[in-house]
Amino acid sequence: MSTLPPNACRLRVRYVKDGRLAYLGHLEVMQTVMRSVRRSGVPFEVGNGFARRMRIQFSQALPVGASSRGEYYDLLLSDPLDEQEALEALRLASPKALAPNAAMLLPRRVPALEAWADFSRWKVCVRGLSMDAEEFAARVQELREQDVLRFMRGEKERSISLAQTLVSCEASDVANGIDLVLQTRHSSQGSLRPAVLVNAVCGVAPLRVCRMGQWHLADDGYLIDPMTRGE
């Protein structure tokens, strides 16, 4: 484990991914956030490795095209800073569609954010479908019973266990399609992308995906908000 400088502390930041910036890939978001941090003037730690990178950790990657109300990063600060002051500086230095909306100082050592925030809730709007919510839900149930979902990513075939990654799926009819609320859990196998499930149920359909939030699923089954103090 790398050593932390005596003054170092960790700042957890929640931000949105919105509007046309939903089409940014995860690496593009990471790069943009790191540049925003540099612009903000917030004092950050730099690693001592070959490349001397900013010491920052991100929550789970969001698919290209998906927006989010709750993405997170943990930034190692080189000097303590008031969290509201840091939030304001970061907000002013960030594109509006990736704006931070909450910040909190954390204990110096916390579990890696990407693995810790393992539970996501999604809202998915699927349009132009020939099936209703009931049929959709029934089809999802069939897939869950089969457990392993095979799908193509690019030219490669991939598979994922729905038993391990899909917690729940609620479908409701709306005027020209259906709305879904999905709850997914990241596993050692990877994470289920909402579009993969929708495509498996009804083929490629126009859809909008928004991650409503991320949590840590504790051993006792409770969901822990990443901005809860003491975690």
Partner: peptide
């Protein structure tokens, strides 16, 4: 916008950069 989900590297077409 409806075409962005169908192309490679949609960030080429977004604008709104810093």
């Amino acid at each position: 916008e409806p075409l962005l989900g169908l192309v490679e590297k949609p960030s080429r077409y977004l604008d709104h950069e810093w």
